[in-house]
Design a protein around this nucleic acid. Structure first.
Lengths: 170, 170
DNA sequence: CGCTGTCAGTTGGGAAATCGAACCGAGGAG
DNA sequence: CTCCTCGGTTCGATTTCCCAACTGACAGCG
């Protein structure tokens, strides 16, 4: 294993990227999450902030709620109204948004409309310049330093024999 | 500035996330980039690896090429064939894929089909567990430690006065 | 030479998602 | 009573998507 070139016969959906995109890869979904993360919890605010058509927004919000990324929380009784908030799973999507934002700032926008700042405890605020670092060894974890291997589950998904080294059925 | 709640009147597209998603947010685009990053450069391999319909794949590949994320490179003359390769911009999308994969492994797949490993120079290979770290200060750069402010460009995009502190017109 | 196969797309027709604008219903506010 | 806000629905027109079949250029075989 540990290959840069194509390692095994293409596990079509045997990769969590596909799974993630099925939940948050449709149009508007990530922008909705951006809006909620930025503190816009109400339907109308999200609609304005994203520019999504209201019926699409309804669909995406419901999908994200059933996906467990957002939750609906009432904020008023008299006119019964609820807003949308990030769940733990939703908060864990912020790195995805951050990656997209950093990429867009670098490659899309001539002049980024928004600047991210970093305000860590005990440090002065400064422009952010983030990279993926491995918690285990403290080294950068991107590109060619990252390799991948199929788990047994992945093997099953892609229709490969359970294990090719030993233990293949009689 | 530096707010967690909604900081300014919703700059609808004034955010590079929207720009990024316009280039790589359509269906199949990120999976195509995944395939190419994994060493599948040929049309048929990408089609098989992603499961995308061939006409959609044609459309996405062309879009990604004109977006500057992929480039078409001939790999055979006699039957004139070309494959697709990542540009620098394309390689910079890998953190996005990695973020999606980590998220999916955590929240979508009961048992991840693919396991990412980290093989840094001079360290033994081990399972990856990455987080965003700020290159400037070395501190984690996610969640509430990250704030944002509108640049002049963003201000213009969202139709706000050039600067609200001083220097506002007459 | 004909036959088969590979590869990179096209083409065509139907199904599904998307869009914008208008509409709705429950509740204040004046 | 009338107007307004908020959170959606509904509608018809457009766009995108999917699938399966097809094309065209070439290679290899007999």
């Amino acid at each position: 294993m540990a290959v840069t070139a194509v390692p095994f016969p293409l596990p079509r959906d045997a990769c969590s990227i596909a799974g993630s995109l099925e939940l948050v890869g449709e149009r508007w979904s990530l922008l909705v999450i951006r809006e909620v993360a930025w503190g816009n919890h109400r339907f109308s605010d999200i609609a304005r902030g994203t520019g999504a058509p209201r019926d699409r927004l309804t669909a995406r919000l419901n999908a994200l709620v059933t996906a467990g990324v957002l939750e609906k929380r009432p904020y008023s009784d008299s006119p019964p109204r609820s807003g949308y908030h990030l769940t733990a799973a939703g908060r864990d999507l912020l790195p995805v948004l951050q990656a997209l934002l950093q990429w867009g700032d670098k490659w899309v926008a001539a002049e980024p409309p928004l600047r991210l700042k970093h305000a860590p405890a005990g440090h002065p605020e400064h422009a952010i310049d983030a990279e993926w670092i491995c918690r285990t060894c403290g080294e950068p974890a991107t590109g060619s330093r990252v390799t991948r291997e199929l788990t047994p589950a992945g093997r099953a998904l892609s229709g490969l024999p359970a294990d090719e080294d030993h233990d293949h059925e009689h």
